[in-house]
Design a protein around this nucleic acid. Structure first.
Lengths: 227, 227
DNA sequence: TCTAAAATTTAGCCTTGCCTAATCTTATAT
DNA sequence: ATATAAGATTAGGCAAGGCTAAATTTTAGA
């Protein structure tokens, strides 16, 4: 009964936790904290403690009390499978179902737990094996490899540099709206006019010579790469 | 807390039961039995009794102990929403993902619980608002209406009649294989050569003058309409 | 009609996930 | 160096859904 639990495909809840740990680690480079995961999944901290212990039993995370959790190799593979599904579904919804760039995120959270690997791979084929989703996030390969990410938040840019938008945080719908409305989307070129340390405002100019002053929250939500 | 349960969208388990009751009633015209639902969902009879009581509380079925359950109007609407999703997803998988006619059924069971109505309607549009799925089953409209079904199993045909295949039972993969391999699919025309009451074998000839002798189990799985 | 088999329900228990309240640990600020 | 705040864990519950075994009702056969 124990090794059965090992071989079963993780429940949708387990998957959500793995993805949260994966994404928090990507941001901070560190172990995922109870609090961080709780906030991301809108559950209580107690539930996270509880789940961390179970994930460790299942061999999906390395966990030490009061120290947070990091993914094991198996946990990381699992998380990447879900990320792959999520991003392909988003791309499908955008390109074939006519959803707005901003609307794409929400429902994919649910669907990613319901589709099989076979479905995912056929979807990838239908879409022409894209390597980035509509927000600019890289899509993991079917083999579980993920492009190394050399992008950084616009808030850390230096004045005068020329940058390409690589991705936009997809957690906040209002921010997605803002960027979407102004066509500040992955692939666009920006020139940094000013980075004001005083208040964190970053002033950029786009390819059409439009100038935008972005406050720190916005500047932290847009990721760029040196061009 | 009680009326919240009323307004919530039913859990995936609840939906599975509603669909099972719906489909059993369609077959037998009668209340769905505990045993029938248990067999269809691969669950113990005790679980079904339990769930019938809960479904009644939720106002989704009419249920009397030892007498089986029938859907209420609300229960029927819920079931039809799921059936609509299921059949549209099957159609999508066949037409856009290149699945075989036989493979289509299985995964849709899981997906139908994860997609929203909005997704479903956009999918319908992408597919050109089909009114039948690949097995020939009618797709309920977004408003919850379903074509009246005047088809009957081939096992009840009379010798000499000309019939069109309307649908094929999709529960048994081996039978789907058999029919699929021989191109005995919805839309094809058949002429009944002989109906042998002795052993239930039905002998038919298709449009290409191929002749098939179908035993009772197969003849009961193929539905036809007078042409 | 009466009895045995089949179907159904009840009782009692388990697991997964989630919650709140109370208790620890660790980190921070004097 | 230590008090306190912040973060994490434990304890104890709850609801959904499932199961088995035992009891009950219905149905069918002699």
């Amino acid at each position: 009964m124990n090794d059965l639990a090992q071989s079963r495909s993780p429940s949708s809840s387990v998957g959500d936790y793995l993805k949260a740990v994966f994404e928090l680690a990507a941001d901070s480079g560190d172990a995922a904290s109870t609090k961080g995961v709780a906030a991301r999944l809108s559950v209580s901290a107690a539930s996270v403690s509880n789940m961390f212990a179970r994930l460790q039993e299942m061999g999906l995370v390395e966990y030490e009390r009061y120290r947070g959790a990091t993914l094991t190799e198996r946990g990381r593979r699992e998380a990447l499978r879900l990320v792959r599904r999520h991003r392909l579904i988003e791309t499908f919804r955008l390109e074939h179902l006519g959803y707005d760039w901003q609307e794409v995120h929400a429902e994919a959270e649910r669907l990613e737990h319901a589709v099989s690997d076979a479905f995912t791979d056929r979807l990838a084929e239908l879409l022409g094996h894209p390597d980035h989703d509509p927000h600019g996030d890289p899509i993991p390969s079917a083999e579980g490899t993920l492009e190394v990410d050399d992008s950084f938040p616009l808030s850390e840019a230096v004045a005068g540099s020329r940058l390409r938008i690589s991705k936009v945080r997809d957690e906040d719908a209002a921010m997605l709206d803002y960027f979407g409305d102004r066509n500040l989307v992955p692939g666009r070129l920006l020139t940094v006019r000013e980075v004001r340390t005083l208040d964190g405002v970053v002033i950029v100019e786009d390819e059409d010579a439009e100038v935008y002053a972005l406050g720190e929250p916005l500047a932290r939500s847009m990721f760029v790469r040196d061009e």
